[in-house]
Design a protein around this nucleic acid. Structure first.
Ligand SMILES: [Mn+2]
Ligand SMILES: [Mn+2]
Ligand SMILES: [Zn+2]
Ligand SMILES: [Zn+2]
Lengths: 165, 165
DNA sequence: ATGGTAATTGAAAACGATTGTCAATTCTCG
DNA sequence: CGAGAATTGACAATCGTTTTCAATTACCAT
């Protein structure tokens, strides 16, 4: 049986670059404010999901968020996690990262845009910024008369560690 | 109920740019040769799928291929279509194009690499080549010590026609 | 051409991720 | 504190895709 997934060996969990595992700390009331700003009610579930997103590794699947939150809030249902992630993605508070047909991964939308470089062997994800590429993307869109709204740029390759077997 | 799909209104079928609907004509024996080169048996089903891929619009879903082929070969099953598309994708004879969580689309791998610019409003797909972007991608990967294997670059925006309402 | 054999097929069930349903619960605001 | 609307969790449903399996077919050696 062959792997179904085009970009990453089946069963591999993309790992995070160490330097980016932790995001900046947040003050306690921040999450409540975020939720209210979305026009939603502040619930324990939503607070727990936000805490999990901001404290844990970036690029988590809905299932991973569910499992994390479920550990401390055993009564939460995964529908709630999916629903809230979707709502946040709609408002661009979280960014969906999709690799081939794999389950979607989410990260709190960072202040600075970045794209992803993924190791097809071990799943490590490196974030990068490349303004020249961004500019060229604008140019391509304009050349075709398109008004660019967003883009997906994913680079796949073999990381240094995996190159050394 | 909101649309689930991040990049394209639900139910929209991406349209093709007129100038690219038809690929170059192929001589009759070509498909048989392609199949044998993959180390597979030549069957009517596989020939029909290849004909459909090369004659119809580019960027078709497995379901669309199935429906097309099924019209002239009513006995074909969709499992055969999925199986063969997957096998061809593994050998890079067809390229999988994924837009968000939508069903995968396939095109016979063109001799020249290109990426896609998609209208989020009407679904039109424009193919483009941008060597400077490709070079920068190589550079980014190398800067991180990665050996680049492939990439996914999808631009999304509003096409000229849709901008004019 | 024929037959043996492994590859391929179609139908249907299974699958994993995600979404919908709905009655019960919980925020919010007055 | 309530009333009322939003939210929840359990569960079923859906979607695209893959697997299973018995029946068929293409291929190769005779
Ligand atoms: Mn990221
Ligand atoms: Mn294309
Ligand atoms: Zn690696
Ligand atoms: Zn358009």
């Amino acid at each position: 049986m062959e792997t179904t997934v085009p970009h990453l060996a089946k069963g591999r969990t993309p790992l995070e670059p160490e330097k980016l595992i932790r995001r900046e700390p947040v003050d306690p009331g921040k999450f409540k404010r975020m939720i209210r700003q979305m026009g939603l009610k502040v619930t324990q579930q939503r607070l727990a999901i936000l805490e999990s997103l901001s404290a844990g590794r970036a690029h988590v699947t809905a299932q991973e968020v569910f499992e994390t939150v479920n550990a401390s809030h055993p009564e939460i249902g995964f529908a709630t996690v999916y629903r809230f992630l979707r709502k946040m993605a709609e408002q661009n508070l979280v960014t969906e990262v999709r690799m081939g047909g794999l389950p979607a991964r989410y990260e709190l939308t960072p202040r600075r845009h970045h794209d992803h470089l993924t190791c097809v062997s071990c799943g490590q994800i490196v974030e990068f910024e490349c303004p020249p590429i961004e500019n060229l993307q604008e140019k391509v869109a304009n050349d075709h008369g398109f008004q660019l709204t967003h883009h997906v740029l994913e680079l796949y390759g073999i990381c240094p560690r995996c190159q050394a077997e």
